[in-house]
Computed example of a mutant assay.
Amino acid sequence: MSTRTPAPPRPSARRRATFTAVLLVLTALLFWVPWAGLLAPSARWPWPVQVVGTAFFAVASVAFPLLLVRAHGRRHSDRASRAAHAMLGVAWVFFAWTLITDVLRLVLAVAGVDNPFRSRLIAVLLLVIGTALVAYGVHEARRVPRVKRVDVALPRLDAAFDGLTVAVLADTHYGAIDRTAWSRATVEAVNALGADVVVHVGDIADGTVEQRRGQAAPLGDVRAPHRFYVSGNHEYLGNAQAWLDHMTELGWTSLHNQHRVLERGGRRLVFAGVDDVTAAHSGEPGHAADLDAALSGTRTDDPVVLLAHQPSEIGKAVAAGVDLQLSGHTHGGQIWPFHLLVRLQQPVLAGLSRHGERTRLYTSRGAGFWGPPLRVFAPSEISLLTLHAA
């Protein structure tokens, strides 16, 4: 089967204009709201501070959209991507905390604290908080994920599988920043768990196999009796079929709307996987989430563990009688308070949740990061689930 990436349709002039307008509005908010927090005229900073600071924000607000287009346009420049995403992360942190410190600004005004002291106090506080959170966020994003251990009771699980361990990897997002050493260390952490099953529930990388082959190579060293993988939405930006094929080459079982049966003493446990929900509109032939196909041939009394990248698929899993769905995608919000926007799209942010009478959902915060190389109050994780017969 050919793994050539289909040519994406050319966007219309109206779509390009809409995208440009939205990008410019968001850029203005992300950069000029923090400017108002740090360099508000009411602070009456010395004119060199005001001029240099304003010039910095002006240059950054012009450079950011240009770098972003270069990073995600036809050139797919990794250098531009690193710069644009770093700027995005810093801008988001300062944007969010500018709004938060504005509440304190209002409190101080009501308390009778006058300017310029009030505005200068807020600016210094914002600078300290923002800088500290960016440094903390970079550290959290680049560290080897912590192991999160969770016990999961499944009513239909046979006692033969009681105690089965499943290590969950998600959202490694190998990308513009070379994280080959991080990838090796993460695989070592997975191997130290001695899990019976290791799964990767999608978003291996941002880019094609050719671009990220070196970073993904350590996944071939994962040790477990069973290794299962399903595609995430980001694979469909870089030829998902090639990633499915490459993971097969690395010794993983790619569950492309398929399932496999584990047996112990004549008892069965099904691991099924579906394409990401975005696959149907990706342009890749033969790709679309098809749960019926994934479960075709299973028995009605088989307990089923479903790999589906996005938690939003849980409704279909409940309707199909799935016992446990394993997902990622949310990153736990990645940079607080972005989790508030994630919850508008996804039913669960992270952790174990119950849906209907039978179905459980485990949502991993993911091992890596997407875009900005920061994680703020949303730590990365390798999840170790121990299944129990209830």
Score class of each variant (00 low, 15 high):
T5A: 13
A7I: 02
P8E: 06
L24V: 04
T27H: 09
A28L: 15
L39D: 03
V49Q: 03
Q50K: 06
V52W: 10
G53A: 09
A58P: 07
P65E: 01
P65Q: 11
L67E: 01
D78Q: 08
R79V: 12
R82G: 12
A86N: 11
M87Y: 14
L88C: 09
A91I: 03
F94I: 01
L104T: 01
A109Q: 05
V124T: 01
V128Q: 04
L133M: 13
V134H: 15
V138C: 12
V147T: 11
A153F: 10
A160H: 10
F161D: 02
G163D: 06
V166F: 12
L169Y: 08
D171G: 07
G175Y: 07
A185R: 15
V190A: 11
A192T: 00
A192E: 07
V209K: 06
E210G: 05
A216L: 12
P218E: 04
Y236P: 04
L237H: 15
N239L: 09
A240F: 12
A242G: 14
D245P: 10
E249P: 10
R268P: 06
F271R: 02
A279H: 14
G283D: 08
G286I: 02
A289T: 03
L291I: 00
D302F: 11
K316P: 01
V322R: 14
G332S: 09
L340A: 15
R343Q: 04
S353R: 07
R354F: 12
L361E: 10
L374E: 03
L374Y: 15
S383P: 03
T386P: 05
A390F: 11
